[in-house]
């Protein structure tokens, strides 16, 4: 079941570190799409979606809480954090504030979990950590997760949120696109399943690597999904982009996602897909 989602023009790709997500009050949230005020408990009961269909941005850990079986998540590689290989201006301070803001020590959380009883390796990215940008640490965690999943015969389910490669780490962050892709390929060559769920926003170097490399690509309604930033395109083309450009619905219409799926039925859909790929004998062979 898909909820109707009304588009609202946004320009948030460039807002690194300044989330366009609504400010949550003590117990109320305001929907940025329909401007309804919702009790937080009400929004929570709908997995942080609004009655109008808007999907609020949520943190990486909260998302895993919604999408995996209670108590099943075991975090892996959590000790890997970014350092500042280029001594890039202001980067150390940015990392400190990103940690404080997100409560995470990197832009992606990795581990294993069960989804509807099916074991999977999972990753979840966090927009509050430097807009989910990928530096060497994030690339390393994703790569290690795919290597772990390949070794243990696990499918990978990943939720992407990213402004792209993290420019503060220069070429090293660009190389993570190659590194993660190579790991995805090795996992894939073992006949293992990889599901990506594109969430708001998924752009840049992450779109151009592991986000678009899933066997099955799901996308949350209304999420911004694209390669080049909207503002960059508008400035280059000197034209205003149409409403609904670079959304989940847009990329599905153009053939680049399998389905747009409401968060409310996302977990059961993923579980159903996992079930259809589970015809393996106990020794892991086909």
């Amino acid at each position: 079941m898909l909820l109707n989602f009304e588009y609202k023009a946004r320009n948030e790709l460039e807002k690194e570190g300044r989330s366009a997500a609504p400010v949550y009050g003590e117990s109320e949230v305001v929907c940025p799409n329909c401007h309804r005020t919702l009790k937080e408990s009400q929004a929570e009961s709908m997995l942080m979606t609004c009655i109008c269909g808007h999907h609020f941005r949520i943190g990486a850990r909260k998302r895993l809480g919604y999408m995996t079986d209670s108590g099943s998540f075991t975090e892996l590689f959590s000790d890997i954090e970014s350092d500042d290989p280029l001594s890039f201006p202001g980067y150390r301070d940015k990392l400190i504030s990103a940690k404080a803001k997100s409560g995470e020590n990197e832009s992606v959380i990795t581990g294993t979990a069960e989804i509807g009883g099916f074991p999977a390796a999972v990753f979840s990215m966090d927009s509050l950590f430097m807009m989910g940008s990928m530096g060497a640490a994030a690339g390393e965690k994703i790569t290690l997760l795919f290597e772990y999943a390949a070794e243990n015969g696990l499918p990978v389910v990943g939720w992407t949120v990213s402004g792209g490669a993290r420019m503060q780490e220069g070429l090293l962050s660009l190389m993570q696109m190659a590194k993660t892709s190579a790991a995805v390929r090795r996992h894939s060559d073992k006949g293992l399943l990889y599901i990506t769920v594109l969430t708001d926003p998924t752009t840049g170097g992450v779109t151009a690597s592991f986000a678009m490399e899933g066997d099955i690509i799901l996308a949350e309604p209304g999420a911004t999904v694209g390669f080049a930033g909207r503002r960059v395109i508008e400035e280059t083309m000197r034209q205003k982009l149409p409403r609904g450009f670079q959304t989940s619905e847009f990329i599905m219409e153009h053939g680049f996602a399998d389905m747009v799926i409401s968060r409310i039925v996302e977990k059961e859909t993923i579980a159903s897909i996992l079930a259809l790929h589970c015809r393996r004998s106990s020794d892991g062979s086909l």
Binding site: S181, T207, A208, S209, F210, A211, M212, E213, G226, F227, A228, V232, I233, T236, M237, Q239, L241, F245, Q246, F250, I251, H254, G255, F256
Partner: peptide
């Protein structure tokens, strides 16, 4: 960087 490139999956092509 353009509308057509996005429509035809620039990110997917690179990936």
């Amino acid at each position: 960087c353009g509308v057509g490139a996005e429509k035809r999956g620039q990110g997917q092509a690179i990936a």
